[in-house]
Design a protein around this nucleic acid. Sequence first.
DNA 1: TTCTTTATGCAACTTCGTTGCATTCTATCA
DNA 2: TGATAGAATGCAACGAAGTTGCATAAAGAA
Lengths: 135, 135
Amino acid sequence: MKRLRSQEFDLASFLGEKGVRATPLRLRVLEILMEKGDPLSHTEIFERSAQAGGAPDRVTLYRTLAAFADSRIVHQILGTDGTLRFCMHDPFRPGCPGNHPHFLCRICGRMICLSDQALPRVEIPEGRWSRANNC
Amino acid sequence: MKRLRSQEFDLASFLGEKGVRATPLRLRVLEILMEKGDPLSHTEIFERSAQAGGAPDRVTLYRTLAAFADSRIVHQILGTDGTLRFCMHDPFRPGCPGNHPHFLCRICGRMICLSDQALPRVEIPEGRWSRANNC
DNA sequence: TTCTTTATGCAACTTCGTTGCATTCTATCA
DNA sequence: TGATAGAATGCAACGAAGTTGCATAAAGAA
């Protein structure tokens, strides 16, 4: 995500365009997510955010990330450790967001996108899978 | 898993061969897992097991499933809901266990194996990923 | 400025899973 | 057969990740 630097555009108006109100915490989180393109967990974002301006409220951070995800600013990836990571959409990285695998280091917990290795489209099985609860 | 019926072989000696001591709970869990080949969550196994002979201890059930996984009797699949499911190895189903996708119904929580749709092998990224903590 | 909507902070709660420890069971061997 | 060691169980407590409800604070619109 090196091409998307805060110098190059106004973070607040970026959020505005996405329909998300810019607040101090949200701008801080946005900066953290943009700093490096790789997916970060809630805990990682919490800790970095705490360093840069005081620990945010845990719940507010969850809601901030949910708001970002709703507005398609970030997408969520479930790691093999069972926790979600949040990743900025990178218009300059082909296949991001998209159907690519991720690598999660078991030791340090760092996740990286393997956006150059596309995954095939999986066929949803036939059957009674519907919106109603009659599966 | 229709071909692997309890009539066809002794569950207790099957566990014995796998180096797992046969106990009432383990036999019950094994039967539940074999009944249908699809992966079941801890909760699903707990509930079915509770019906068939009284509710087992939650922790013991976790340990039972861990023992099965250690002995390669089952494998674990992390669903998009963040919870593990446990699935018998089916020697008669090609690609099970193996690198295939799974489908998880968001409504009813049922998971099914898509063992006919193989996934490509993913290249682990180059770098300092090692057993030591110097990632 | 006032009003309405949205964001925040706090407390409490849920789910999934783990750890520690004492007790019970079971396979084995004398 | 009975003693014994190793494994399985049951219970309590803990922990991480994430959610819900509600009161307060902040922001945008009129």
